[in-house]
C-alpha cells in the first residue's frame, strides 16, 4: 500500500503513483508523511513501513544524518534555507544500507500550519556509472592515440630511419672512394639501392597501418580482400558491401576485421577464418569467425578493449562469442545511416 492522501485531487494522486522519481513528503518533525511507489522500489521500504518514521533514518546514511537534522532545525528556527528549491546531488541509503548517488530537490508546500517538505529524488547510479565509463573510455582513446604515436615514432626510428642513416653513410663512403676503387663503389651503390628499397617498403607498410589507401580509394570490398591476403591464416570473405559508406564507418569496420584477423593469427591456433560484412538497413554488421581454440574475452587484451572504444565512439556495439574449443566470433554492429 502507498501513502498518498486520499483527499488529494485524483490527478495529483495519479501523478505520485505513476512517477518514476521518488516523491516523499516529510513534516516539520522530520517524519515521513508521503512515500510513493518509486520510493518503495528505490529505498526498499514499503509505504506502510515508512509512514511516521524519521526520514533521516530511512534514507540518509548515518554519517550524514546529524547534518540533515541540524539543517532542518536551523531552517525551522528561522535560518536561511540551504537546500530548498534547487537541485542537489547527495548520497542516499537503501534499506540494506547500501549507499548510492541521488539527485534531489526539496520544496516546502505552502499550506497553512506546520510546514511540509516534498522531496523528489532520483537514483543516478546508472548515470554516474555511464559518466565514469565515458570518462574512462575517453581516457583510453587518448592513451591509445598517444601509444600509437609513440609506436609510430619507434617504428620510424627502428625501421626506415636506420636504413636511411645507413644509406647516407654508404653514399658518403661511395663518394670518397669514387675514383680510387670503382668496383667497391659499384658494390656500395648496389647496397644503397637495397637499403633504399627496404626503407621504402617499411614506410609503405607503416603508411598502410596508419590508414589503408586501398580503403580510401576503393572502399571495404578491396580493403577486406587485401586484409585477407595478408592474414596469417586462409580467410574467406563471405560478404562485403560494394557500396561506399561513411569514412568513419568504413575505417571502423576495417579495423574490427584487421584486429580480429591479427588475433586469429596470433592466438587462435585456427586453420581458417571467415569474414562477413553486410549492411542491413541502417546497421553495418561485421563478423569475423574462426575455428580456433576460443576463450577470447572482450576485456582481456588491450587490442579488443581499444576496438571496443573505437566501436563505441561511433555508437556501435561489439560482441565476442568464444567458447573454449569451438572458435571465436567477433561481431560488431555499426550504425551507418538509413
Amino acid at each position: 500500500m502507498t501513502i498518498v492522501d486520499t483527499d488529494l485531487p485524483e490527478r495529483y494522486r495519479a501523478l505520485l503513483l505513476a512517477a518514476l522519481d521518488c516523491v516523499v513528503t516529510m513534516d516539520h518533525r522530520g517524519s515521513v508523511v508521503e512515500w510513493n511507489p518509486a520510493a518503495e522500489r528505490t529505498f526498499g521500504w514499503s509505504a506502510a513501513e515508512a509512514a511516521g518514521r524519521e526520514m533521516a533514518e530511512l534514507i540518509v546514511p548515518p554519517s550524514l544524518r546529524e547534518r540533515h537534522r541540524a539543517g532542518l532545525a536551523r531552517y525551522l528556527a528561522g535560518g536561511e534555507p540551504v537546500v530548498l528549491d534547487r537541485r542537489v546531488e547527495i548520497t542516499a541509503m537503501r534499506r540494506d544500507g547500501t549507499e548510492f548517488p541521488c539527485e534531489l530537490t526539496i520544496t516546502r508546500s505552502t499550506q497553512p500550519g506546520a510546514p511540509l517538505f516534498v522531496g523528489y529524488l532520483r537514483d543516478i547510479t546508472e548515470r554516474h556509472t555511464a559518466e565514469a565509463e565515458l570518462h574512462a573510455s575517453r581516457a583510453r582513446i587518448v592513451t591509445a592515440a598517444d601509444d600509437a604515436r609513440r609506436r609510430l615514432e619507434r617504428d620510424l626510428h627502428d625501421g626506415a630511419q636506420q636504413h636511411l642513416v645507413g644509406l647516407a653513410m654508404t653514399l658518403r663512403l661511395a663518394r670518397r672512394k669514387l675514383f680510387d676503387d670503382p668496383a667497391f663503389v659499384a658494390e656500395l651503390l648496389d647496397e644503397a639501392i637495397g637499403d633504399l628499397s627496404t626503407a621504402t617498403g617499411e614506410l609503405r607498410e607503416l603508411a598502410r597501418g596508419l590508414h589503408p589507401a586501398v580503403l580510401t580509394e576503393g572502399g571495404l570490398q578491396p580493403a577486406l580482400t587485401s586484409l585477407a591476403k595478408r592474414a596469417g591464416v586462409p580467410v574467406a570473405i563471405l560478404a562485403a558491401p560494394d557500396e561506399r559508406l561513411e569514412p568513419t564507418v568504413e575505417i571502423t569496420a576495417y579495423f574490427v576485421v584487421a584486429e580480429a584477423l591479427t588475433n586469429v593469427a596470433r592466438y587462435a591456433e585456427a586453420s581458417s577464418a571467415e569474414v562477413r560484412v553486410q549492411r542491413v538497413g541502417g546497421v553495418l554488421h561485421v563478423e569475423v569467425r574462426d575455428d580456433g581454440r576460443g576463450g577470447a574475452e572482450l576485456g582481456a587484451g588491450s587490442g579488443l578493449r581499444g576496438l571496443l572504444d573505437r566501436v563505441s565512439a561511433i555508437g556501435g556495439t561489439l560482441f565476442v562469442e568464444s567458447p573454449e574449443g569451438v572458435g571465436t566470433l567477433l561481431r560488431a554492429e555499426l550504425p551507418c545511416g538509413s
Partner: peptide, 16 residues
C-alpha cells in the same frame, strides 16, 4: 641494437 647500422658504421670507420 640495429645490426644494419653497426655494419654500415663499421665499414665507414674502417674505410677512414
Amino acid at each position: 641494437d640495429h645490426s644494419a647500422f653497426r655494419s654500415r658504421a663499421k665499414r665507414m670507420l674502417e674505410a677512414e
